[in-house]
Design a protein around this nucleic acid. Structure first.
Length: 219
DNA sequence: AAAACGGGGGC
DNA sequence: GCCCCAGTTTT
């Protein structure tokens, strides 16, 4: 059991996080916000990469190809050229084409709105699949990336070793009303305050709730 | 459980 | 120069 007050924490985050720049997916415009294809491809681009870098590259790519058919019309080299700065660009270009081929062959050219179908796509793991469900389709899901995993453990809200374990625990204990929000809010907190190393606890609006597990107090 | 993929930005 | 970054796959 945990004594961490999740309701208080989420209320504070809802109030405080909007003053920071929005994460990539949350920052997408109205048209893109519910475009599962763009969410999916942008998430592939963002693997182990600064999301500010993805924000530069994604519009460049979508201007040329915003559907599986148009994307597949580009060669691996052409895609790699367009997305170069994100890193892993050869892998990602190959993965993007493989995904688009599968979308056309097995899903009528649409992104499936189903967790298992998403996980079956090449290069798609639990983080990406859950982000597409929640951000792309407004369906239930909990997207656990390194920020969510780290911060929930620092809080003392969960005690887990891996992001997957964190997701499964959150499915048990996180009130349903927060499922779709927790990723965006914790990414913002993680990028701006609760950094992986040297978190700025003195600037954190949740400091009074946090167990600060694994966090060194600074002065 | 650990390595590999990989270039750009911050310090 | 060195370390980190909205992970996933393979060994």
């Amino acid at each position: 059991m945990t004594t961490f007050d999740i309701h208080a924490a989420m209320a504070i985050l809802r109030a405080e996080m909007p003053r920071f720049p929005k994460p990539l997916i949350d920052g997408m415009g109205e048209e893109e916000a519910n475009n599962p294809f763009r969410i999916l491809i942008a998430t592939i681009l963002s693997l182990r990469t600064k999301d500010t870098m993805t924000a530069v590259v994604a519009p460049r790519l979508f201007a040329v190809a915003d559907s599986p058919e148009k994307m597949l019309a580009l060669s691996e080299e052409e895609i790699a050229e367009l997305i170069y700065p994100v890193g892993f660009y050869r892998n990602k270009a190959r993965t993007i084409r493989a995904i688009c081929r599968r979308l056309i062959e097995e899903h009528g050219g649409k992104v499936p709105a189903d967790l298992d179908a998403l996980l079956a796509l090449p290069g798609v793991g639990r983080k990406t699949a859950n982000l597409v469900l929640t951000a792309g389709f407004d369906l239930p899901g909990i997207c656990v990336d390194t920020h969510v995993h780290r911060i929930c453990n620092r809080w003392g809200y969960v005690q887990t070793r891996t992001p997957e374990e964190t997701e499964m625990k959150l499915r048990e204990i996180l009130p349903f009303e927060y499922w779709k929000e927790i990723n965006g809010l914790l990414v913002t907190l993680g990028q701006n305050i609760c950094h992986p190393t040297s978190p700025r606890c003195s600037a954190c609006p949740l400091a009074h709730l946090c167990a600060r597990v694994g966090v060194e107090r600074s002065r």
